[in-house]
């Protein structure tokens, strides 16, 4: 028997439109669904609405119209407490990293575990391994302001994956690193994906997309006269 999530998609957008204000439409009639365990890129020019789309997925914005469901649940029905619990299953690499400047790299990475009440000193070993894996083994106790942009980005990635999320959303996760490190980070995402995590990566790096060959959601338009629409409206839902 197929679960509800498998039928309707882990992430499902139905006719979703979104604007920041009455005069700033960003997304129009976006419909797609992402099956569990899938790997997608979101592609679009700067300002096309990639970050906005991800913000809708990690429950930071609400759609102006249309319906979004995550893990089989309509997000409009979620209480604040429900949202917090759902966000623990979603790892996010923010475009601007959003590291806490007063905490060390290690403490930043451990934060999702602490917030979920899952942190024990035994997990410190995992935190260190993960930071070593992204090439920051020598920077465990460094504060973010003392790290380069690319190093901060890798701390942000480690934080996004430390709790083994079911859904990983990454906004330009390789924008600040050289190709060699970019490939290594993408390899990390692929490994997670193989273990079952659904991955969505927003980027305008077409090179990357070609190299990995995963399906792509393209956002075109995306200025105030032409709000972005998704191409193709990915995979009609199984029950539609």
């Amino acid at each position: 028997m197929r679960s509800r999530v498998e039928e309707s998609g882990l992430v499902r957008f139905d006719q979703v439109s979104f604007n920041y204000g009455p005069n700033a439409p960003v997304l129009r009639d976006v419909t797609f669904h992402l099956p569990p365990g899938s790997f997608h890129f979101v592609l679009g020019a700067s300002g096309a609405g990639k970050s906005s789309l991800l913000q809708l997925m990690y429950l930071w914005q609400k759609p102006t119209s249309g319906r979004i469901s995550l893990f089989g649940r309509d997000v409009a029905q979620l209480t604040r407490a429900d949202k917090a619990l759902m966000r623990r299953r979603i790892g996010v690499v923010f475009q601007d990293f959003r590291l806490l400047d007063h905490l060390s790299a290690r403490e930043n990475v451990a934060l999702p575990l602490r917030v979920a009440g899952r942190y024990t000193s035994g997990l410190d070993e995992h935190v260190r391994e993960l930071l070593a894996w992204v090439g920051l083994g020598d920077y465990l106790d460094a504060l973010p302001p003392t790290l380069s942009g690319g190093q901060q980005q890798r701390v942000a990635i480690a934080r996004a994956v430390i709790a083994r999320p079911s859904l990983l959303l990454a906004d330009e996760p390789t924008g600040n690193v050289d190709d060699r490190i970019a490939l290594r980070l993408l390899y990390l995402f692929e490994e997670l994906n193989k273990m079952g995590t659904t991955v969505v990566i927003a980027t305008h790096n077409e090179n990357l997309i070609e190299r990995l060959g995963h399906p792509t959601i393209r956002l075109t338009g995306g200025d105030s006269r032409h709000p972005a629409i998704a191409h193709p409206p990915v995979l009609p839902a199984a029950d539609a």
């Binding site: 407490a81 623990r88 959003r98 934060l111 999702p112």
Partner: peptide, 13 residues
């Protein structure tokens, strides 16, 4: 900003 981030990674109020 810090509180937003805590919420974003799943902190309850």
């Amino acid at each position: 900003n810090v509180i937003e981030l805590l919420h974003l990674i799943g902190a309850q109020d």
